[in-house]
Amino acid sequence: MFLELYRVHLFITKFFKEAFTPPFEGKEILKQCYQVGYKSLALISLTGFITGIVFAKQSRPSLAEFGATSWLPSLVGIALFRTLAPLLTALISAGKVGSSIGAELGSMKVTEQIEAMEVSATNPFSYLVVTRVLATTITLPILTFYTAFVGLLGAFLNVTLSESASFSAFVQSFLESITFLDVIASTVKAIIFGFTIGMVGCYQGFNSSKGTEGVGKAANSAVVIGMFLVFMEEVIATQITFMFRT
């Protein structure tokens, strides 16, 4: 247990050392950003949209009891922006991207492709790990804002099915409910989630062993550990944000 924690510590330390050491892999980082975004986009769009619809539908009757249906955009905004969008995006990315990174690097490890890279004078940590971790760290905040936007569209669709509503008024009410602290907190959370998902996937893949069984284990561990850490970070981040709010 302690040995494993020490190895994780060394892996993270190496990441920060390599991330600031030239040559910088700009082209590969862009490629990985595209991969991360592309892989998650369809599922994130669908999940975000459905979450918006369902959340609006479930909340509306309760608000109607108090004659407060006009608060629906604010409620949707707060729920989506503060928690649902970062969390949903991170969980989907942990499943799609984390497992993909774990399996890809794991497969490269057991088929000696990582060693082949090393002997051809390429630093595999910089080329494979740093690029993927930076890509998830950069892309997750963008995907989080996208999820929030798609969720908003879903909520608006639900509202317009039962009553006439103006989209601009809905959006304005949505935006008014969000504070600067919400924007900062969600962005920081998404960055941390992205870093975690990338790091866990790379660590599991880079340290996989025992042939094809090891590849499967690396992919599986990347998802399970990634999701667990995302939930833990969400709890801690929420506590910290509330400290700033009060």
Partner: peptide, 20 residues
């Protein structure tokens, strides 16, 4: 070490081609 590796070719048992 990177400079030295440029002067050494390593042919792996598994060929180790980048499959992507």
């Amino acid at each position: 070490l990177l400079e030295l590796r440029l002067r050494i070719g390593f042919s792996f048992q598994s060929s180790a081609l980048y499959d992507s």
